[in-house]
Design a binder for these strands. Structure first.
Lengths: 102, 102
DNA sequence: ATTATTAATCGTAATATTGCAATTAAACAA
DNA sequence: TTGTTTAATTGCAATATTACGATTAATAAT
């Protein structure tokens, strides 16, 4: 029904389609590494909710979590972030017709 | 709860979060202008479904539709597409820490 | 061993999304 | 006018997403 490219674009875009995940990622960029509980406090969502969003981001490979005792330190996974960017850029950067079409 | 920037990013990303809308946009880029019925046939979804997706894209200002008799010709709205790109790029292009963080 | 801390998982309610058949609306054609 | 064509709208069922309380799991501290 859809090309694998279309599916991939949609999958990546979907994960950014909720402000909580955008906020999580912005926080990880800002402070470089962060614990689940800190994100929960910073963003204002319950811990299980943050955990759930982190799981989705991790599943797509955009972040990784490192266990440090009882806590888990999350951060951006640079390689996959770059790969994701390439996929989305190819879609977003399509040539726009100069003249109005209709 | 969220910044207006986070909401805006999520709103734009969400519309790309479904392969049908990605397919519609790719088709509009490819053939420059297109009718609802043609999209329905090309993509393989019922006309009302396509119409619904077009509505969402139009609501965000990414496409526009021009009535031509009984048909409606849809195409990319270049200005808003560029504006949307700026918003998403600012988010996607955040500096990635060089060293592994955790 | 017991307790404390932190994150993951489970279960569930509320809400949102998706897809389509049926219908309506609008413009054109005869 | 009457029929034809095309897209929008409505109504609804199926599915997915989101949020969180309660619980569990894992490690650390005493």
């Amino acid at each position: 029904m859809y090309t694998s490219e279309q599916e991939e674009i949609a999958l990546f875009a979907k994960v950014f389609g909720h402000p909580a995940r955008v906020a999580i990622l912005q926080q990880l960029f800002k402070i470089d590494a962060c614990y689940c509980g800190d994100l929960s406090e910073e963003i204002g969502l319950a811990q299980p909710t943050i955990s759930q969003h982190l799981k989705e981001l991790k599943h797509l490979g955009l972040i990784k979590g490192n266990v440090e005792g009882t806590r888990v330190c999350y951060c951006i996974e640079p390689k996959n972030w770059t790969k994701m960017k390439k996929v989305l850029y190819q879609f977003l950067d399509q040539d726009i017709p100069k003249a109005d079409c209709c």
